[in-house]
Each structure stands twice: as C-alpha cells, then as structure tokens.
Design a protein around this nucleic acid. Structure first.
Length: 220
DNA sequence: ACCCAGGGTCATA
DNA sequence: TATGACCATGGG
C-alpha cells in the first residue's frame, strides 16, 4: 500500500479537514506550541483565555509578566514551560519583523531559525511552516509514526528527518506542483490526526476503519 | 485510579 | 547517539 493510497483511503473515510483550526497565522503558531503532547481541547481553553485578555499578539505576550502568561496557559498543562517557550518564540518573531517579513524567507532557512528557538522542536516547526507559512513540509507526529509503522511504510527507528524527507520525496514524485503539495500535506496530516484520535486509539483493531485490512497492531 | 494527549529539553552514560 | 526524568492539566 502506497502513501498515496493511504491518503486516498483516509480522505474517502473522513473528507476534507480544513486545517489548521485557527483564525490567523499567529494563532496557528501559538497553538502549535501549546499542543505539544497535549489534547487540543485543552489548547482551545488557553487560546480562549488569550483572546479574552486581548493577548493574541506577540507584542502583548512579551509585555506581560511570565507568571500572567503561565496563568492563561494553565489548561494546557506544562504551563510554566510553555509560558517560557511561547515567550521565546514571540521574542524571535518580533525581532525577525513579524509575519510580513518572515514570509519572504526561504523555507530551509526559516526552518533552521524556528528550530533555533528554545522550545520549538521539529514537529512544532513543521506545523508552523505548513499551516502558518504554507510551505510544502510534511509533519511527523506520534500518530504518523504509528499508522505508517503499522502499514509497513515506516520502520519505526528512523529519525524525524529521515522519515520526513523520505515521505516528502516520495509524494513529490506524483505531486510536482508546489502549491498542490502544500494542499496535500496539509490535508494528509490533518487526516492522520483525525484518524488517530477517533479511530485508532479508541478502537485499536480499527473495526470501523477504512484501513482495517492494514491497520492491525503488530501482534495481530 | 489509571492512561494518554496533535513534544521538547536537559542530564547522564 | 541513546535512553530517562521532567514538565502538568483534563477527559476517557
């Protein structure tokens, strides 16, 4: 079963996901940091707190005390850590000139800069690149590793970079247009998360899953 | 009461 | 380079 076939199955099963669930690019970036190892329902509460405080802006988040920021982020867990991470990110973001300036950076360099921020790892950086800057980057998360391992499309011991670049190369063979790849990667990652949340976890054997013939656990 | 969630950093070997 | 400890709330 190819990467393309898996995508087609997921798309037929769940339909378009219209990600990322955010109103602005900056809100995408904030959500990407806050959702680290955290259920999205908890992230929504923190984002609501920020909006209620008129604080969904980098300059505002930098101006407020870290303890105040941590309080807004409490529902996401790890709130002390995340308050510092979000602050680090905002400092870089503002210093770099904001979205209007950053959107002109070449993808590779933008990725390196994101990774240089304390608290931004490979997945968070790729979420931001794909969903806030619309770059053709394939996001690898725990769901992605699990489903691709089960389907024999990943060995499980690759590094993040190995798996990401291999998937990007493979899908580029059939999608040569860059904008089409952005759309494909966007939808693909969203579908994997949807599948992982609603099917693979609650129903380990994927009884109602369109991939049931391929999604068995290794022990099955 | 337990498990895990749309990870990342840091200390240790 | 490769594990392990740590961060911490909320829903199943």
């Amino acid at each position: 079963m190819s990467l393309r076939e898996v995508y087609d199955h997921l798309y037929r099963a769940h339909g378009p996901q219209s990600w990322w669930p955010a109103k602005t690019p900056f809100e995408v970036m904030v959500g990407a940091v806050l959702t680290q190892n955290t259920a999205w329902t908890n992230v929504e509460k923190a984002i609501a707190n920020l909006h209620a405080a008129e604080a969904m802006k980098a300059e505002r988040l930098l101006a407020v005390p870290v303890a105040q920021l941590a309080e807004w982020l409490r529902p996401t867990g790890y709130f002390n850590v995340k308050a510092r991470r979000l602050r680090n990110f905002c400092a870089w973001y503002v210093a770099a000139g904001g979205y209007a300036r950053l959107r002109r950076r070449e993808t590779g360099r933008l990725r390196e800069e994101l990774l240089s921020v304390k608290g931004i790892g490979p997945e968070t950086a790729d979420d931001i690149l794909l969903y806030a800057f619309h770059r053709p980057v394939f996001v690898i998360d725990a769901y992605t590793r699990r489903i691709f391992s089960r389907l024999g499309l990943a060995s499980g011991d690759e590094t993040y970079e190995q798996l990401r670049t291999r998937i990007e190369r493979t899908l580029t063979l059939t999608e040569q247009d860059e904008q089409a790849r952005v759309t494909l990667f966007n939808e693909y990652h969203a579908l994997i998360v949807r599948h992982g949340k609603e099917v693979c976890r609650t129903k380990p054997r994927c009884v109602e899953c369109s991939l049931r013939a391929h999604c068995a656990t290794p022990s099955d």
